Simulated assay, not measured.
Amino acid sequence: MTERDAAPSADPSVPPNSNPVAELDSVTKQYRSGDEVINALDDVDFAVEPGEMVAVMGPSGSGKSTLLNVLGLLDVPTSGTVYLDGDDVTDYDDERRTMARRRTIGFVFQSFHLVPMLTATENVLVPTMFVRGNHRERAEDLLRRMGLGDRLDHRPDQLSGGQRQRVAIARALVNEPRLVLADEPTGNLDQDTGRQILEEFERISTERDVGVVAVTHDDLVTEFTDRTVELIDGVVQ
Score class of each variant (00 low, 15 high):
V48D: 05
E122C: 00
R145Q: 15
T128Q: 10
P59A: 11
I38T: 06
V124H: 01
L84G: 06
V229D: 07
R101Q: 11
F107E: 00
L125N: 11
V76S: 11
S111G: 09
A7D: 14
D75C: 13
P20T: 12
V108S: 07
L84S: 01
L220K: 07
D93N: 05
E200W: 08
G58M: 05
V82K: 02
H113I: 07
A47D: 03
R136Y: 10
D11G: 04
N17M: 13
G133H: 15
G194A: 05
T81I: 12
T193S: 03
D45H: 07
R166S: 02
Y31V: 14
D88H: 04
N19V: 12
P50N: 05
R144V: 06
N19E: 13
G161Y: 02
F130C: 11
F201K: 01
L179R: 09
L181E: 05
L179E: 00
D45R: 00
E199M: 14
D233K: 08
Q163I: 03
D88L: 00
P15D: 03
D35T: 13
S111W: 03
S13H: 08
V56Y: 06
R32M: 15
T128N: 12
R178D: 06
A7Q: 15
N17T: 14
D219N: 14
V82C: 03
S205A: 12
V215G: 05
R101M: 09
N69G: 10
S79V: 05
F107V: 05
T119I: 08
T104A: 00
D183N: 11
L125E: 11
D183I: 13
D157N: 08
P127M: 11
I105N: 03
P15W: 10
D190K: 14
R166F: 10
M146E: 03
F107C: 08
L143A: 10
V124D: 02
V89C: 04
R203P: 08
L118G: 04
N175Q: 08
P15L: 10
D192R: 09
V44F: 04
G61P: 09
F201S: 03
N17P: 12
K64V: 04
A172K: 03
Q237W: 10
R164A: 02
R96L: 02
R136W: 11
V21D: 06
D157R: 14
S205H: 04
E176H: 12
L181T: 09
R136Q: 13
P177Y: 04
H154Y: 07
D219Y: 13
L74M: 14
E95N: 07
R151Y: 07
H154E: 09
M57R: 01
